[in-house]
Design a protein around this nucleic acid. Sequence first.
DNA 1: GCAAGGTC
Length: 863
Amino acid sequence: MAPKVLMVAEKPSIALSIASALSGGRMSSRRGSTDVHEFESMFQGFHAQFKVTSITGHVFSVDFPSTYQNWQVTDPVDLFKAPVLKLESNPKSHIRRHLSHEARGCNYLVLWLDCDREGENICYEVIECTGFDENEAGRKILRAKFSSVTEKDLLIALENLVKPNKAEALAVDARQEIDLKVGVAFTRFQTSYFQGKYGNLDSRVISYGPCQTPTLGFCVQRYMQMTTFKPEKFWSLNLHIIKDGHELRLEWERDKVFDFDVAVMFQKLVLDGNILEVTYVSKKEESKTRPCGLNTVDLLKVASSALGLGPHVAMQLAEQLYTQGYISYPRTESTAYPATFDFSTVLGAQLSNPLWGNLVKSLLADGFNKPRIGSDAGDHPPITPLRAANEEMLGNDAWRLYQYICQHFIGTVSPDCKYTRTKIEFAASGEIFHCIGQHVSTKGFTSIMPWMAISEKNLPHFMKGEKINILNVELHEGCTAPPDYLSESELISLMEKHGIGTDASISVHINNICERNYVQVNSGRRLVPTALGTTLIRGYQCIDADLCLPDIRSFIEQQITLIAKGKVDHVHVVHHVLQQFTQKFLYFVKKIENMDVLFEAQFSTLAESGRLLSKCGKCTRYMRYIATQPSRLYCISCEEVYYLPQSGTIKLYKELACPLDGFELVLFSMAGPDGKSFPLCPYCYNSPPFEGIDTLFGVIKLGNSGKLGKGAGMPCFLCPHPTCRHSIITQGVCACPECMGTLILDPVSAPKWRLYCNMCNCMVSLPHGAHRISTTGKKCPDCDSTIIEVDFNKKTTPLGDGATLHSGCILCDDLLHSLIEMKHGKSFFRRGRGRGRGRGRGGRSRGRGGFKLEDPKMSFRDF
DNA sequence: GCAAGGTC
């Protein structure tokens, strides 16, 4: 039987290229989690059946077990020693199931992941999913090494399959674990510490990361240079002459001096001599070289500085252009084209362009230049256009980005720009002056990239030894100026230089520090650090400057490189690095007050922030509501913070209190005109009373998304399952007749509903056949308790035909009594003992306490 | 609620 070969690529586009190349275009494709291409061909000397499919980047990502997920319970320092789980990154895409299914019955697994460390790591993720075993007899795992996806390179790779490199994969495992533990530990600690003290930090989370923090560090460093800059006055000489009827200004060789008297002395010296002699005339052929291929970092820099598009947006647009087939893969480090690159075809696609079609035509006719040799990172070819496009097809921003990619590509195959540079030097009383002229002979690539053009400057003719009269010598006073805020483009260069982030992640880190409110993008796309950003960096500098220096990333990289090279065991390296970071963390915690004094000077404490809103259940005093993110309540006397759901508004809810803890309920309304509202208890929201349930009285998940959103409703808090149809008595405001505690609808007994009170463990049965219980929002005129509605299902009701909806007060028999009696002849509820809403506060009861459904003594009245 | 790295 013909052997079966499963091939897996890192992304769908590569799987398609591989299948087309190996099958000669004769394959069939079917849809799956990712597409599968099937064909038959020769493999290792045999006729074989091939399947080529792909994943979409990493299949797994690392995280902590659920026992470490609670911020209140877990001490961040414990995270350094915590176990780490690999979980499917995107469970909904079912990549794992897909690979496992496709691998069934296959004899060979060929891994076509990108040829870098991350790719090597993903190889082992794929192996894990397919169930292949390296030591298994009869099944083989092979790795294809390729530097481009041209047919030729892919066929060569197929002939030279190797084994995947475990050491490189382990280096990535190490990086993942270190990044996770360090990032999460510091983030949780400093978030809890500062959010628990200050009210106007205006960031949901005070994050720390070995990439994002040094990125912020660069912005703040420039800001510090600006604020500490001391301007200095300087003076220079502007010397003018007239030659062939043209006035000409000459540059002073000394440029500027910082002493006024010295400047005046030079001015006098030159004026007294009054004659200028040409001492040197040079004329040189110069050239400005055409660009190398375009990589991601250069694209992002141009997008920011010339097109005004931020890196995050630029990457989104590039991604869109790529998936629509207008450009090649946009995430690459390489500026060198592969040897087999087909320039004519790429150029040919641009012939129809109205702006540069003619230029392309002449390049194709006259023979275009081979691009300059750039650097080959072994990942993907430089970014080039593929299909022709116009503005209508792409939309303005995508079109401008596409246009640049085209111009750059055409530039790379155009001639260099050639020009003549003339320099004339003059002397006057021993002082040297000069002027420079430029004349372009070949525009070359600057025709298509006009912003790179050499400016023409014609000079009159000068002869060596020629003497010229000085027209005047002006003393110009200037002042040194501080540098401007760091531009995005400069930041990208710094990140690249220091190895912070990768081509794919640089834009993410910059976006992160913006979203966390550490920097703001100013006009001209310059990054202005916020008070929060500068305070954080100044704080790290006070405690441990390493934490915000780029070396922190290079240290990790250098350590894991030892693993990749097989020099040190990965467990040892991880242990060693984490031990160092644990020490740094403990020292940071110990010295946090040094950072805190900076925060104190900059921000308002929680006690000074927000406004009084709702009562604390512990001290019964009003708590302050802080609306800036993260929105929360702060009790000044208890010094406790209660976080609230974000992105919405909060107001007091009917002055009702939660029966479990006495905290006043608040109403959360989601943002937007149709935003739903949910009542919630601030205490329960922060520490859910029932295990596995997000919160009592409102909020949180419903629907498949598991998030608040369109279609979300109030869940049954007894049964957290999203499809549970049990409703709770709305907002739980019906009071228990015994103790005035809130009665909770018990779905366990459905369809024979019961209400139970978990304060006093009593229970009230409701009529059999009731299929919905809810509150009316109306109050009983007698006792001020809430009137409930009992909706009976006609078919099952023992009450007889016509029984539909009954309203009544749960405390005051009268209303309910009379209503029910009309149909039934007896009351459901015993008369309540108390009247009014006074309620003793019991201890907080966790879980369902002593409530026993089957215990008849507990039953208030078993109907 | 948290990192950084893939990719869509």
